[in-house]
């Protein structure tokens, strides 16, 4: 019989962002393709006017922020709710072509889903 060692406690994963790893290859690729991403000043206009933001977790300000911090996983998923309506472009005070940016983020960060790995089980 194995003793019951699960007391219901466990170490939670650290939520801390380690900036030492922020400069990853994907972000560099994104910034090369969409240099305007560096101009974002986190004002939140895009998130405030987002058509999908009221109903889903989608928040472009946060997505951009998390990408610049090298923490992509949690946020890229949110982009699935984007309807590409482009309202965010209209309100961005820094003139960022946010819709184009979203497209590039999806292409660069969602590559495994766009091009599923082959060779397994076929």
């Amino acid at each position: 019989m194995t003793p019951d060692i699960n007391f219901g406690f466990g170490l939670s994963k650290s939520s801390r962002i380690n900036l030492d790893n922020a400069d990853n290859e994907k972000f560099r690729e994104l910034a090369a393709r969409e240099p305007d991403i560096l101009k974002c000043m986190a004002c939140g206009s895009c998130a405030a006017s987002c058509s999908a933001g009221n109903f889903t977790e989608l928040n472009l300000r946060k997505i951009i922020l998390m990408l610049t911090r090298g923490a992509e996983k949690e946020t890229v998923r949110q982009l699935e709710s984007c309807m590409f309506c482009g309202k965010c472009i209209l309100v961005c005070p820094r003139g960022i072509n946010t819709r184009h940016l979203i497209k590039s983020i999806r292409e660069i960060y969602c590559r495994p889903c766009a091009e599923p790995e082959t060779g397994n089980g076929i």
């Binding site: 962002i17 380690n18 900036l19 923490a71």
Partner: peptide, 12 residues
């Protein structure tokens, strides 16, 4: 704290 993401950050 990265107050815009609400997360603690650490850097060397």
């Amino acid at each position: 704290e990265d107050t815009l993401s609400g997360k603690p950050v650490k850097i060397t």
